[in-house]
Design a binder for these strands. Sequence first.
DNA 1: GACATATTTCGATGATTAGCTAAATATCGA
DNA 2: TCGATATTTAGCTAATCATCGAAATATGTC
Lengths: 103, 103
Amino acid sequence: MNKVFKALADPTRRRVLELLRQRPMTAGELSEHFEVSKPTMSAHFAVLREADLVDAHKQGVTITYRLKLSVLEEALLGFSQAFGIGAAPSADIPNIPPKETRS
Amino acid sequence: MNKVFKALADPTRRRVLELLRQRPMTAGELSEHFEVSKPTMSAHFAVLREADLVDAHKQGVTITYRLKLSVLEEALLGFSQAFGIGAAPSADIPNIPPKETRS
DNA sequence: GACATATTTCGATGATTAGCTAAATATCGA
DNA sequence: TCGATATTTAGCTAATCATCGAAATATGTC
């Protein structure tokens, strides 16, 4: 789960995931959406793979990346529920009323 | 939103947020839960403030940090919804006053 | 086999980050 | 005012990170 959050920390990688939400795409196809070099994109893909957020499927000379939505979902939902955010079985977690002060 | 994800990328900071989920705590009180130095913790607090995930309320010599749940919620839920995850919006989460830490 | 294509690995670089100790700042109580 | 306490700022180091160009790897085509 730490790796997932580390992976989500970079805007490029979050954008890659959003692109993959629509359909699987090849590395080159994904790269076209960004202005960074292909080695850099490749490194981003490696981080996403390492976090198990995508899987890579090689067909011939191309590599197709596919979003592993369940992994993203589990991490995000799991974390959210620890805070009582989102769809959650009503947990007995006390919350603090907002107060909006700053020094 | 980028700052929020950057802030969430560090396990210490995620843990701080989870501690603050229960009740507001002072910087020193929070620091006791970790094995890093206080200046290091102070830097983590600064990142969380910068991401607007907490706010700081100075009372006398101590500074009390409080989780801004709505900001966390908005970021997490917003991102989740881009993926169709965790569709259900947070119902009523009971707002229970903090355990009195005598001032 | 030679060549083009898709992608990764290598090696380097500059930026950011987490960590530390020491020092500064601010507040409180005597 | 002095000393204790809480927290931050300053200055530093080591590690991690995003990025690049060049080279390597693998595949398909002629």
